[in-house]
Structures are given as C-alpha cells and as structure tokens.
C-alpha cells in the first residue's frame, strides 16, 4: 500500500490505515454473510472450460480442440467460462450542486471515490472513473493495478464543480458506452429536478450491479434557514423568494423525505444498494458502512 503516492487531500496515512483495517474486517464479514450467495470471481479463473460446440465458419481456429479432432475427426470449438471479473466504474457527480455544503459535498464524494477505487484496485479489480454534470465530462476506462490509483487521485483532485446535474442523460450516455455488466458506483446528491428513474432503470436492464451513494449536506436534510430569503439555485442561478418559517421548513422536510424515500424504494425494488451520507459524517464511517454491507468487496 505504501508504494502509492497518495494525495493528502483525499486519503491520508491515517485513513489508509483505517482502510486496511476495514478491508480485513469486511473480508471476514463478506465470507460469513454472503458465502454461497455471491461466489468470488477469482474462484474459477478466466480460462475455465465450459463445453464444446461445432466449429462454425468465422470461429477463431486457435480455440479448435485438435485432440478431439484427432479422435473423432470433427472440428469442435472449445468454449471456456466467461470471465467473471466485472470492472468497477466510479461515477462522480461534479455538478455545481456538489460544491454545496460545509464541508463541500464534493470533498466527501472524492474521498469516497478514492477509497473505493483504492480498495477495488487492491482487489485486482479494474477501476474506471467517470465524472459528470449534465453530461459525461471525464471518462477513464477501467484499469487494473495499484499504480492506477495515483492517476485516479490526480484526476479526482482536478475535478472542479460546475454545470447542472442531469442524472438520466448521464446514465443513459454511460450505458451506451459500457455494455459489459459492471459494478457502477454512482456518487452524487441525486438532487435533479428532472428525476433519476429513467437512468437508473436503464442500469438495471444492463445487468449492472449498482451502488448509489447519495452525499448530502445537513442543511439539505434538515435546514436551519429562517426568515425572508432570496434563494438561488446553485446550478441554474434562478432565484425564488421565500419566507421560511417553521411551517415551511416542516413542509420542506416532508417533501425532502418523500424524495429520499422514493429513491430508496426505487433502489430496493431493483436490487441497487443505496447509501446516504452526510458531509459531516467521517469518511471512515461511510466506508465501514459501504464495506460491511458488502456492496463493495474488500
């Protein structure tokens, strides 16, 4: 682990130590909790024999089993079990709304992205990083090896929040590029007036394993704002005036909770893992929560 040059902004020595501990802890828990439910990808390997079938023109002649041909004088193609290793795509929302919060939601989101990529790379998974706002901004194809981590961290550090969020467009666009079933870890606030269902529904059709990490600020969850305000949208700049009193705050909280419930239910229905984290939550607690639930293999 020490061979990777880590950015002090994202994962410091203390955090990396914690990650190691989390990794060891979560391994035990995954074995105990999920054995038989989700076999390890590394148990079969990528060249494991599956079956034979008749050779057809256009098949790669390298896969013809010449031994069978010698015995039976017929061309058979040797089929192997498809490679079970699925790439990990970390989708990081870099829209302007991620700049909101104290500390910024993007800061926690980057930490989570760095941590998950670190763990995944450590597990010999291929990790790709995608940043988005209303469209895909950066698309780093999955790569394997711990050395990739540094470039990912550098990329994460270069992410500047800007633009409006459009989850549906982004996910649909992402899915056109990624055909193979992957582990898609989407880190965002999912605060998109146009919704999220269309994009997430498409993810489920692609047999992707989806983990949603919703990063929110305390002020978004339970606002303390009071009085007469001119409230501007951080992404669009459009402003509306409100007199915020306890009644309006209660109405907002109810509306916000409905939004969260809708997202959570949607994820539950489609087998997506859903995590909601607050910006004031220590990143180690977030990671423990992620790994202990097995959404991300450690």
């Amino acid at each position: 682990m020490n061979e990777v040059n880590l950015s002090p902004l994202l994962l410091d020595e203390r955090l990396l130590t914690i990650l190691e501990q989390v990794r060891i802890l979560s391994k035990k828990q995954v074995r105990n909790l999920r054995s038989g439910e989700q076999p390890s990808r590394r148990s079969g390997g990528s060249m494991e024999f599956l079956e034979y079938r008749n050779y057809q023109p256009g098949d790669d002649p390298r896969y013809v089993d010449w031994n069978v041909y010698g015995r039976m004088n017929r061309l058979y193609i040797k089929l192997f079990q498809a490679e079970k290793e699925r790439p990990v795509y970390i989708l990081l929302d870099s829209s302007k709304s991620m700049e909101f919060g104290n500390p910024e939601k993007l800061f926690l989101a980057r930490q989570i992205a760095a941590a998950t990529s670190y763990i995944s790379l450590a597990n010999q998974d291929r990790v790709g990083l995608v940043t988005f706002d209303h469209g895909l901004r950066e698309f780093r194809l999955p790569e394997k090896g711990r050395r990739v981590y540094l470039s990912l961290v550098n990329l994460l550090n270069e992410v500047k929040p800007d633009g409006e969020t459009d989850i549906n467009t982004v996910l649909l666009d992402f899915l056109t590029r990624v055909n193979r079933p992957s582990l898609v870890i989407a880190i965002s606030d999912f605060l998109d007036p146009s919704g999220f269902k269309q994009g997430l529904k498409a993810c489920s059709y692609g047999k992707h394993e989806v983990v949603l990490i919703q990063v929110l600020d305390r002020e978004e969850v339970s606002p303390k704002t009071d009085g007469y305000v001119r409230m501007g949208d951080v992404e669009t700049g459009k402003a509306r005036s409100f007199f915020i009193d306890q009644r309006l705050r209660d109405a907002y909280t109810a509306s916000f909770n409905r939004f969260i419930t809708t997202l959570r239910s949607f994820c539950l229905e489609r087998g997506f893992d859903y995590f909601m984290v607050n910006t004031d939550t220590p990143v180690e607690e977030v990671l423990i929560s992620l790994f202990t639930k097995g959404s991300i293999r450690a």
Binding site: F100, Y228, V229
Partner: peptide, 18 residues
C-alpha cells in the same frame, strides 16, 4: 424585509413545499 440572498441545491423542493 429585504430578502437575504442564499443559495441552495434544493430550490425545487422548497418550491414544492411552498
């Protein structure tokens, strides 16, 4: 009163609540 300018990510939820 003179409106205090603030920024939020959930203006549409505030509008809905309003």
């Amino acid at each position: 009163p003179k409106a205090r300018p603030i920024f939020s990510t959930t203006v549409y939820l505030w509008q809905k609540a309003h």
